[in-house]
Computed example of a mutant assay.
Amino acid sequence: MKKLTLMFAAILSLSQFTAQSKQKSFDKNSKKMNTTEHYTFKLSDNVTRKTVTFKNRYGITLSGDLYLPKNAGNEKLSALVISGPFGAVKQQSSGLYANEMAKRGFAVIAFDPSYTGESGGEPRNLASPEINTEDFSAAVDFIGLQKNVDRNKIGIIGICGFGGFALNATAVDKRVKAVATTSLYDMTRVMSKGYNDSVTPEQRTKTLEDLSQQRWKDAENGNPAKGSRNLPETLKGDEPQFVKEYFDYYRTPRGFHANSLNSNGAWLMTNPLSFMNMPILTYVKEISPRPMLLIAGENAHSRYFSEDIYKSAAEPKELMIIPNAVHVDLYDKVDVIPFDKLENFFTTNLK
């Protein structure tokens, strides 16, 4: 794990563990899936889905899918806003969650974050702790204006890296009545300190020096450079287990999507800059008295993020550990993700 440099943690650029192979990739062999119309899950017969757009506070147009239960009647619905994982798009995990929660009677929007997927923002392939937090609140704006939604009953679900942004958005946006996360990552922590806070001050300084020099190169070239692709085309076989698990989701028919940076692209090289000095969960206690549910896999490499937030958060809070599950199991395995628990949590707390 010593090879897990801060840069790797920052951009989830797993390719340093693998060769830049020129062998055939999944997306080359499955061109029919390289369209925005492809979803990695089947839409429920009891749910409708409609593509929508809305703007965030920075004027960026976001693209989302609005999921509604069929035959909901005239009663106003409780609503949920969902995004994640970090580097994914709405046709992957967030859409699957939205589909499942709409089946249970909620109005739900799953959206692509700014600068990624079908959402706007330039340059492309960029993330920001402030803007991605704002994206959640912009989605709350949108869904709360729907005539069939009770704006006093809105919750958030954040998956993976967007679990951290979800908590940050809930802390600052008092319209959100309850928040749940699955396979939580605190992206500001992992980018600035590495996995398990293993980055030394010297390593951090070196990374910041490299990023600063990259800014000169970007300024000279007139555009920002892309980093290494987030996942390679093939694995050698000697990668860490969690790398293999990411690959199994993003780079196979299970979860591949052409618009997803983790399936098919790379973050900008300077993407970590805005994360390095901005811990997003400083005010996590201010979520209270609104309830928080943290869900993590027993065998997930990311489990410590949820456990540490649970320790630092104020009541009411709950930590749910899923036996035998790994990080990516909570992306799409409907028999592992505790949807009944999520339904009960939001039904109880969106009052």
Rank of each mutant, 00 (worst) to 15 (best):
T182D: 09
S183G: 14
L184I: 13
Y185H: 11
Y185M: 13
Y185W: 15
D186V: 07
D186Q: 08
M187N: 10
T188N: 11
V190R: 04
M191T: 14
M191S: 14
S192I: 07
S192P: 02
K193A: 09
G194R: 09
Y195S: 02
Y195E: 04
N196A: 06
N196Y: 09
N196K: 09
D197N: 11
S198W: 09
S198H: 13
S198C: 09
P201A: 05
E202G: 04
E202D: 12
Q203I: 01
R204C: 03
R204N: 07
T205R: 15
T205A: 15
L208D: 08
L208S: 07
E209K: 12
E209P: 00
E209H: 06
D210Q: 15
L211M: 10
S212Y: 11
S212G: 07
Q214N: 11
W216R: 13
A219E: 14
A219L: 15
N221T: 05
G222H: 06
G227W: 06
G227F: 08
S228I: 06
L231F: 12
P232C: 04
E233I: 05
L235M: 04
G237W: 03
D238W: 06
D238M: 04
E239V: 01
P240I: 02
P240Y: 02
P240D: 02
Q241L: 03
Q241I: 02
Q241E: 06
F242R: 01
K244N: 04
K244L: 04
E245H: 03
E245F: 02
Y246I: 00
Y246S: 01
D248N: 11
Y249M: 03
Y250W: 08
R251L: 00
R251V: 00
T252N: 01
P253V: 13
P253D: 15
P253S: 15
P253R: 15
F256Y: 14
A258M: 14
A258N: 14
S260G: 11
L261G: 10
N262R: 13
N262Y: 14
N262S: 12
N262D: 08
S263C: 05
S263R: 10
G265E: 12
A266S: 15
L268I: 06
M269R: 14
T270P: 01
T270W: 04
N271E: 09
S274Y: 03
M276S: 01
M276F: 06
N277W: 04
M278N: 10
M278Q: 05
I280W: 05
L281F: 08
L281H: 08
L281M: 08
Y283E: 05
Y283F: 03
V284D: 00
K285Q: 13
E286M: 06
